[in-house]
Amino acid sequence: METLAADSPRYEFPDPPPPLNAVPAVQCFDMRGARVIVGTPGQGWRTDLRADDPLMRGGKLLVPVLSESDYYRSQDDGTEAMAALHPVESVWVEKPDDAAERRTAAPHLFERLVDIECPPKRWPVPASDVHGLTGRRVWLWRSGEFGTDLRCVSEAFENSDGDIAVKVATERDWYRWARTGKSPTVEEALIHLTWLEA
């Protein structure tokens, strides 16, 4: 029988990661590479985007925004990517809200209703509560902190130790995989240490 150290990840049960809050871009500095949301209050929102630092054009402050796949391609190639220019007032930056209560997303519809005038706060969801994990962005607890910019590349499975786990890869590898066909470097993550960025 296997003997486990008291500090084994099997015995860690950390609080959930902080929720992601949308901060108006006009309140942010150094936006290069930041995850952003674009949209119009009362209409809708687009996520999975990255930004560059704002610029002035025609007397207006604009934020260059591109898809995450284009962002990672430009990072790998060392080239500039074509970005759409959005008015600064239609861009919000995703930031962990470390001051917020540490809890998971509400399970019931009426508890999840939001104000459509601004992007919603995104509470984490335990990976064990979700069907269809493959491709989803996750937080992973490891070495006493939460790792971000990760994607699930498998559904839950039972590993050789009898634990329930998933396989994760960095987002950079995830997008490179789609672009080049090169399989990502993967890491096994215990399901109870993994949360979706819902």
Rank of each mutant, 00 (worst) to 15 (best):
T79K: 05
L55R: 09
H86Q: 11
S74L: 04
V91M: 04
Q43K: 13
Y72M: 05
D97N: 15
A106S: 13
G59M: 10
V93P: 04
P87A: 10
P119W: 00
L133A: 02
D97F: 13
P87Y: 06
R137Q: 13
K121W: 04
E94D: 08
W139N: 05
T79S: 13
P87D: 13
A84S: 14
T134K: 15
E117A: 15
P96A: 13
P96V: 05
E89P: 00
R73K: 13
A105M: 04
A81P: 08
R73Q: 12
P96Y: 15
V91C: 04
Y72H: 12
A84R: 14
Y71R: 03
L85M: 14
H108T: 06
G135A: 01
A105F: 02
A106G: 06
G78H: 09
R137H: 11
A127R: 03
A105E: 08
T79D: 14
S67Y: 10
M56W: 11
L85W: 08
E94T: 00
T40W: 13
V88A: 09
L109V: 10
T134M: 14
T47W: 07
P124L: 05
P41V: 06
M82Q: 12
P64Q: 10
G44T: 08
V125A: 11
T134Q: 15
T40I: 13
